[in-house]
Design a protein around this nucleic acid. Sequence first.
DNA 1: CTATGTAATGTTATAATGTAACACTACATG
DNA 2: CATGTAGTGTTACATTATAACATTACATAG
Lengths: 162, 162
Amino acid sequence: MQDPFECTPTDHQHCISSALARAESLCRQQQVRLTPMRRRVLELVWQHHRPVGAYALLEQLQQQGRAAPPTVYRALDFLQSQGLIHRLESLNAFIGCAQPHRPHQGQFLICQSCQSLAEITDDGIERAIDAGARTAGFTPSNQMVEIMGTCASCRQQGATDV
Amino acid sequence: MQDPFECTPTDHQHCISSALARAESLCRQQQVRLTPMRRRVLELVWQHHRPVGAYALLEQLQQQGRAAPPTVYRALDFLQSQGLIHRLESLNAFIGCAQPHRPHQGQFLICQSCQSLAEITDDGIERAIDAGARTAGFTPSNQMVEIMGTCASCRQQGATDV
DNA sequence: CTATGTAATGTTATAATGTAACACTACATG
DNA sequence: CATGTAGTGTTACATTATAACATTACATAG
């Protein structure tokens, strides 16, 4: 398994371009339009490659012309509806989804030390949540799981010097 | 198991007063001060008995004198630090915790139909999350689990008339 | 009992996040 | 070309949260 927290600069260009390619293909399949604005916002999200707020994206858009909050939020809403990005509720931020092809909700590992984030898709977690909810007479439609802690590389460093 | 979504008016008075009594006792134990303001905010949170926003609480406080946002947020921070309330990230809202004596994080069942909320504490979920995170080389310290769906009573009604 | 320090609250202003409402433009289709 | 719908622009505002500093309450040492 590739460490989801690691990404060299070279990888990173690849991350971005392959994410955009996947998005193009997925939107064609779904017959929805990945307009220039939507594509641009998705590109910016992937450039960060960590949770990024709507207003940070807005500032970047404003460096190349005018833009206002609704424009960003609309693009983000669209991207989210297509599963191309996830929203992190505990951070009010967004991140690109690496597996937009198969619908999922994902669980998020948020490193409190380096602010990096990894997405996992763990059937065991999803099943446990589903079972727990149903035991309480509740019919779940959607799960949000955000896990705060320390990523592997921060833990190694932190073991001595933090 | 008592249905966490149900609470008659009579029960409700009992909910509030017993929550306050538990809070008093817990704060004495912890040697922290449940000041009148903090107590009042906790009481208001319990009066709602569903997720309530900081500004809704603020408005209520303002009906009995002046109050400003920092006052409410400080009280909420304190209550949260003592485990007396939980913050629901996906709703930007707060709710009283029914088991403040044993530290826990809880999982939240949010009914999208009636906006009620139930807290469960499911070891299976917590273990699955812990295991899933560790498999990814991540050391979790804290979990946020918010589950959207339909509560039992809404589902019964909704089966026919929604 | 007063002095002193810390915790808690008051107060003002502002930051950060998000949306409503309406105008305009682009684009597909009849 | 006419028309409708999706997408974007624009303005204004709503909602949520915090920074910074003043003041008050309260415990404890002297």
